[in-house]
């Protein structure tokens, strides 16, 4: 029997925006892969103090920073750092939010109360305090940064998944699954999960953007990656002292690199938002 089920790609109404932004994100992925293999921008940490703050030229396309390191290489290497932070933070928060939301709403009762208690407590603490507390506890560093971000940004996903699972639980197909003796695990993973995955997908992309943007703010507070790691956040924050002496290329290249990636992911979410299962249900983060 032929099913009329549409694949996700068929349901997306503006395929042009979607493909272009997917292509851009993929391009960043390739860049990150090349820099991590050392085939591209390998000189990002090469210190040449005599070349400090040289303006853009043929040799150094985007000039150099205070230690004479190539800004172009650092901006390219920064995409690797940004993708690592965004991907792992979003994965962690999606897993936590999805698991807690599914379990809480499925079993209801005291399990659900515990989940709700946990996220309302988390939510009522000013976010920056939460992050600062975790960063202090775990120390600086790339790994700790995305773990801290992942541990603190799952609340909105959990809330949405929980609400949707409560709706799905009352559907006939759940009663049918129970009557044929499907186990709890099977009912959660095979029956409910496919009906809530679209929420997780959207929240994953939103958290991805959020992690990349908050890294800049945490760098400003001194809670980001260690100095020396070529992150866009550090590059942007260095600019606050450099701009008055006319050094604009660090800020410009890091902001541009970040702008293109974040805009592409934003457009990805936007085109998903206009398609069927997600229709107009996206809530963007502040900042």
């Amino acid at each position: 029997m032929k099913t009329n089920k549409l694949s996700l790609l068929d349901q997306i109404r503006t395929p042009k925006t979607f493909t272009i932004s997917l292509f851009v994100v993929g391009f960043y992925g390739i860049l990150a892969l090349l820099t991590s293999l050392g085939w591209l921008a390998a000189d990002y940490a090469l210190v040449q103090t005599d070349l400090s703050y040289s303006p853009p030229s043929i040799d150094y396309f985007f000039g150099t920073d205070f230690l004479g390191r190539s800004v172009l290489s650092r901006a390219l290497k920064g995409s690797e750092v940004a993708l690592i932070i965004g991907f792992f933070a979003a994965t962690l928060s999606t897993l936590i939010g999805l698991a807690l939301g599914l379990i809480g709403a499925y079993f209801s009762g005291w399990v659900d109360d515990a989940v709700v208690w946990l996220y309302t407590t988390l939510e009522s603490i000013p976010y920056i305090l939460l992050i600062a507390g975790l960063s202090f506890a775990m120390g600086p560093g790339l790994n700790n940064l995305y773990i801290a971000l992942g541990l603190t940004s799952w609340v909105s996903l959990c809330r949405l998944v929980r609400a949707e699972v409560y709706k799905q639980k009352c559907q006939d197909y759940m009663a049918a699954a129970e009557s044929v003796g499907a186990s709890h695990l099977r009912r959660i993973l095979y029956h409910i999960l496919p009906n809530v995955y679209h929420i997780a997908l959207i929240q994953f992309t939103l958290n991805f953007i959020y992690a990349i943007k908050i890294e800049v703010i945490l760098s400003f507070l001194g809670l980001g990656v260690e100095p020396g790691v070529p992150s866009w956040g550090l590059m942007i924050n260095e600019a606050k002292d450099e701009l008055t002496s006319g050094v604009w290329w660090g800020l410009a290249s890091a902001t541009t690199m970040m702008f293109i990636l974040v805009l592409a992911v934003n457009l990805l979410v936007h085109s998903l938002n206009r398609s069927q299962p997600f229709y107009n249900n996206v809530r963007h983060h502040e900042f």
């Binding site: 600019a239 701009l243 800020l251 902001t255 970040m258």
Partner: peptide, 22 residues
């Protein structure tokens, strides 16, 4: 309007402050 909003949102808060202040 949507794309403009998304573009506005794609610039870092810190970058806004630094650029505007300068």
């Amino acid at each position: 309007v949507s794309v403009l909003c998304l573009a506005l949102m794609s610039i870092s808060f810190v970058a806004y402050i630094i650029i505007f202040q300068y």
